[in-house]
């Protein structure tokens, strides 16, 4: 059994089997390849390259997909009341 390689996947250190491709990694992690983007050492891979690219020691892999989002998540400032006028008051906390 060849010695495993050390890689970073989404910021986590992982020992992985030598000779594995990006497609193997996705399969082992049970991630469907449709609608994911893979960045290998800051290079965005074409989907077609997943099965070709072999992982090497020290590789940094980022696997991304779509999540719910509108614009930037709001940093809720609780309890802050913005006074707009005598009658019109808007509170971010008491929404």
């Amino acid at each position: 059994m060849p010695e495993p390689i050390q890689i970073q996947v989404n910021g986590e250190s992982k020992a992985w089997r030598r000779g594995a491709t990006v497609a193997d990694l996705l399969e082992d992690l049970e991630i469907k390849t449709e609608r994911v983007a893979v960045e290998l050492n800051l290079e965005i891979l074409d989907r077609a390259a997943f099965a070709q690219r072999q992982l090497e020691n020290g590789d940094r892999v980022e696997i991304l997909s779509f999540i719910g989002g509108g614009t930037e998540q709001v940093h809720r400032s609780e309890g802050v009341v913005v006074a707009l006028g005598a009658q019109e008051r808007y509170s971010t906390a008491a929404r």
Binding site: N10, L64, S65, F66, I67, G68
Partner: peptide
């Protein structure tokens, strides 16, 4: 509909996908 792009959760594989 707008969506954001973020890291896939690799530890909790049961997580469902928005799409």
């Amino acid at each position: 509909v707008t969506v954001a792009v973020r890291r896939v959760n690799i530890t909790d594989r049961s997580k469902e996908n928005l799409l």
